[in-house]
Design a protein around this nucleic acid. Structure first.
Lengths: 228, 228
DNA sequence: CTTTCTTGTATACGCCCGTATACCCAAGAT
DNA sequence: ATCTTGGGTATACGGGCGTATACAAGAAAG
């Protein structure tokens, strides 16, 4: 190739976009057909082979492309939201060193920002959740990696915002995986059930707060040393 | 028909069993073919139409049949496990009225019993999780109903065992849904990742305990009256 | 004993699928 | 100016698919 990285070929882009459109329309990835794909993209069926070896190949490229586009903005929005909730009020920690009011405000805004973000990219989340437990191991691995990346960002932010004081970083990491995955899975219902969005968001907030509170309380009795 | 309910016809049973087998072998329901199904069942393709109108029809029958077979035994095993953990020791509630040691023991045994049950019915859980977020609305609704039933049993047991004292029943119900769904989803990894089973089970226990602890602590400040 | 129903089969048709082969053309490279 | 290569197309093949129609055999009903 002339430059180290040429722009993605037109056909490749069209095929990936077509796939995303079809998958978002209640089609399982495994049930996707190569001709169907080409038809949707307005291309000759054989064009597929110019860019991909197998359908899994396309799926992987699609997920990686989307993941790369979404990761940074998602984090940015969350940080903005958390900042806006973290006002000038003085902190008022309870006997566990946890400021519940602040935790509630930050959680509320962060969760809200997540679901807003979901609504801005409905196809990506729809397809992502559908295939997260789907039958293609390749896609599942890629999606797990993606959520893991999101969760890593979340863990860093929780630390930056000092949201889980006195909770060791392994627990924070594990908690972030749980929370991010749960939010991710909830996004499907959030998109599809327009009239339940408020309830879903509230429920998500409650779950996060319970997990955080539980983690803080349980960290109290085994703070540093190892229990055998 | 002579009796009000005749035994399920041989072909119908064979087709449902074939479907379960194929779905458990990394095939998405949407990608199932009618001829493929008949081949696996050792039947003529047209036999399908004798028993089902559409593939969704078969899927629904399959899920309902499995759900009916599993619900009671699952609860039975959990109750036995919880009983065995609930030994003669006197209870030692902390300042929140929560006996953490007892909670840990009962949770441990209950979660263990769940995953043991999963391993006894791997195909059912494999397929259930895969299709839980799958593209067929009919199957998804049926699976949700099933998990909801399991969660209802769990909520009743939590009350019977007095595991969440001072937590109102709506919260217990909601918590049970969350926990049961989470366990359900984890069952896929539990089945597939033989070498991570211990870790998955431990993590599940921790999550349940965090949620329970969090729920108890958060219930402290809004026990009876409504906060506006 | 005959009729009717239920369950399963055989054959057949038309359609869509994946893919092999061959051709085309524009853009760079030489 | 010629050659190579990347991206797109046209045609064609064999095979599997869903399903319509017609037939068969055992069980139940009359």
């Amino acid at each position: 190739m002339s430059q180290l990285r040429r722009a993605t070929a037109r056909g490749k882009r069209l095929l990936m976009e077509a796939a995303l459109r079809l998958l978002a329309r209640n089609r399982s990835f495994q049930a996707l057909g190569l001709r169907e794909l080409a038809r949707e993209a307005g291309l000759n069926p054989n064009t597929f082979y110019r860019h991909f070896k197998t359908l899994d190949d396309l799926g992987l490229a699609l997920i990686e492309s989307i993941a790369e586009q979404l990761r940074k903005p998602l984090r940015e929005r969350r940080r903005e939201a958390a900042m806006s909730a973290d006002d000038e009020r003085p902190r008022s920690p309870n006997e566990l060193g946890f400021d519940l009011g602040r935790g509630e405000r930050v959680t509320h805004e962060s969760v809200k920002s997540f679901f807003d973000f979901v609504l801005a990219h409905p196809e990506a989340f729809l397809v992502g959740v559908r295939e997260f437990y789907g039958p293609s191991p390749v896609l599942r691995r890629a999606l797990r990696e993606t959520i893991h990346g999101f969760a890593t960002d979340l863990a860093d932010d929780i630390r930056d915002f000092d949201l889980l004081p006195n909770v060791d970083s392994d627990t924070v990491a594990q908690l972030s995986e749980t929370v991010m995955q749960q939010l991710f899975l909830l996004s499907l219902d959030y998109i599809e059930s327009k009239d339940q969005r408020e309830a879903i968001q509230r429920q998500a907030e409650r779950e996060v707060l319970m997990l955080f509170t539980g983690a803080i309380v349980l960290s109290r009795q085994a703070p540093e040393y190892v229990v055998d």
